[in-house]
Amino acid sequence: MSTNTKILTQEFEYFAPKTLEETLGLLCKYKDKNTKILAGGTDLLVKMKTINLNVDYLINIKDISELNFINTDGGLKIGAAVPLSHIERVGKVKEKYPALYEGIKSMAAIAIRNMATIPGNICNASPAGDTIPPLIVYSAELKLVSKRGERTVQVEDFITGVGKTIIKADELVTQVNIPEINNNSGSAFSKKSRVKADIAKINLAIWLERDGNFCKYCKIVLGSVFIKAVRAKKAEDLLREQIVNDDLFIKVAKKASEEIKPIDDVRSIAEYRTDLAQVMVEDSLKLAWGRAGGEL
């Protein structure tokens, strides 16, 4: 990251459309230019100051009422303009989707969460994004809309690399859909960073479904250990349809730590991340299992 210019050095044109229709029209019109969607701006404006990200047209979607909703009937549907601080106050999020709740709570300070959005976190596509592992374990999908039509994509398939996603220039993420989860399942989020409100050295989310002593199904997703948040599929295979006990959790956690490919960077080193992953997966498995009503 180069120097912080402290001001926005480039000129751009600003739009604040009031309707989705208008926004899609603008996106279509300027799809060949450097056009960016401004939701919270907590990543975008910082990038414009520090890495001189080129922007010719900026479209603020915060004032569009169609994107400002949370629907809790059958799962969770969250509009693209809803700030994180609003989502964390919804009772169902804390009760039914604790990994998402804990992920959001671990992010930055309240003044940032008052602005930031989930689609912003996803489209920024940082490997350390804190909402991404929880959304992947809950099989969340994004609704992408453009003048040409709409499609839904799993969050897991949406991000392809550091800062890279499959979104097309004329498309807008309008909402996040999280399916209903049944009462036999449990989930957990864990993150290690230097101080609270910091970017993760490593973060992870776990979701599992219990059938008596069996783990029927599970998902383990780790962030900040690869170019994007990744599932530890070999570890999941070890756990799926097995009778759960302490030893199994230790084995699964070890497998997960062997599977990931972390790097050395400013926040941590690969060796530490690998060791940390093992401990965190084991602890989170126990927590999620407990939340699913299981005993060890």
Partner: peptide, 14 residues
């Protein structure tokens, strides 16, 4: 609500 005014455009506060 609290926000950090350095990473918000004046236009966003209209």
């Amino acid at each position: 609500k609290t926000v950090k005014s350095c990473i918000m455009l004046a236009l966003q506060a209209r």
